[in-house]
């Protein structure tokens, strides 16, 4: 697990002015070419996922028993699997599954974590202590084991996998959000909001949450890659997305290992797809962190 350092207070970059977005993007590309490459690959991945039905040369579920375990060729660029299904098409559709799980888990995990963390910091005292203890208990489980436990309760399938990956992420996100919110709580504007008689909910949601935006975005990008990796691991174990849904981890399971020697393309290409997607998210996330967190800028 990569620990995400919270952003220093008062150094949250100003929101780009109207029309300044283009300049901000260009500036990011110029200053952080690696991050820009990552962003481009991420974008391609998203587009491939969205347009899978247009791009994929074959139906990912269509079996062709005449072409089982076929080598990569002009007809099947990346070969076929044990059921004669086109590997390239399944990878393209698999991107849809990976992006869906990745974005859903990272968004839910980081958001719920941030809300819990900020709430914990805002109330402080006994509430804070209690929330921290409960989070400690969840943190004592390795991520994958907690995910396994959730899957065995809820069963497999894409929604349950999303739940299983999101739940262990929440306490980790809460920890990070809490540590940045602790300093925000002491800010005069929070005092002012309290003096103005605003409700706790309003202060937490409207005044404090927006100010943990930098660590929130950093967590979000870091969790995207992790969620994709976890989904692949769960699916590989047969506890994630269920057949015949095209998913990268699932493609590495069973026949891919069994026929690895005679049909290595089945085991190689889906793994590349996972690595490339996660690599791009990490590359982008790292650069985003450097850009958003000036304290780490020179590192």
């Amino acid at each position: 697990m990569m620990a995400v350092k919270p952003a220093a207070l008062g150094e949250i970059p100003e929101v780009a002015e109207r029309g300044g977005w283009r300049r901000a993007v260009l500036e990011f590309c110029r200053a952080r070419p690696l991050g820009a490459i990552g962003a481009v690959v991420v974008l391609i991945n998203i587009l491939v996922g969205l347009g899978a039905h247009v791009i994929a040369p074959y139906d990912p579920l269509a079996t062709d028993y005449g072409a089982m375990l076929a080598r990569p060729s002009a007809g099947h660029w990346l070969g076929t699997d044990a059921f004669g299904r086109d590997v390239l098409s399944r990878i393209i559709y698999g991107s849809r599954t990976a992006m869906l799980v990745g974005f859903a888990c990272a968004f839910l995990g980081a958001t719920l974590g941030a809300v819990i963390g900020v709430t914990s910091a805002y109330f402080a005292g006994k509430v804070d202590l209690l929330i921290q203890r409960v989070m400690d208990i969840f943190l004592a489980f390795p991520l994958i084991i907690l995910a396994l436990a959730v899957v065995s309760i809820l069963g497999t399938g894409i929604e349950n996998v999303i739940m299983a990956i999101t739940i262990p992420m929440i306490p980790r996100a809460a920890l990070v959000a809490r540590s940045s919110a602790l300093a925000i709580r002491e800010m005069p504007y929070v005092d002012a909001a309290r003096a103005a008689g605003f409700s706790h909910r309003r202060i937490i949601l409207r005044h404090m949450l927006p100010n943990v935006m930098a660590p929130y975005l950093i967590m979000l990008t870091a969790y995207l890659g992790q969620a994709i990796l976890l989904e692949a691991s769960l699916s590989f174990l047969g506890l994630g997305v269920a057949e015949p849904t095209p998913a990268w981890g699932l493609m590495l399971r069973g026949a891919a290992v069994q026929f690895a020697e005679s049909a290595p393309w089945m085991a190689i290409f889906p793994g590349f797809a996972i690595s490339l997607a996660v690599f791009a998210f990490n590359l982008f996330g790292d650069s985003l962190r450097d850009a958003l967190d000036p304290r780490l800028r020179t590192q």
């Binding site: 990569m2 890659g225 590495l252 190689i268 793994g271 997607a277 990490n282």
Partner: peptide, 12 residues
């Protein structure tokens, strides 16, 4: 290294 699933690296 962070992006490559260990289990896939094992298969490779």
């Amino acid at each position: 290294g962070l992006a490559t699933p260990s289990f896939w690296l094992g298969i490779v």
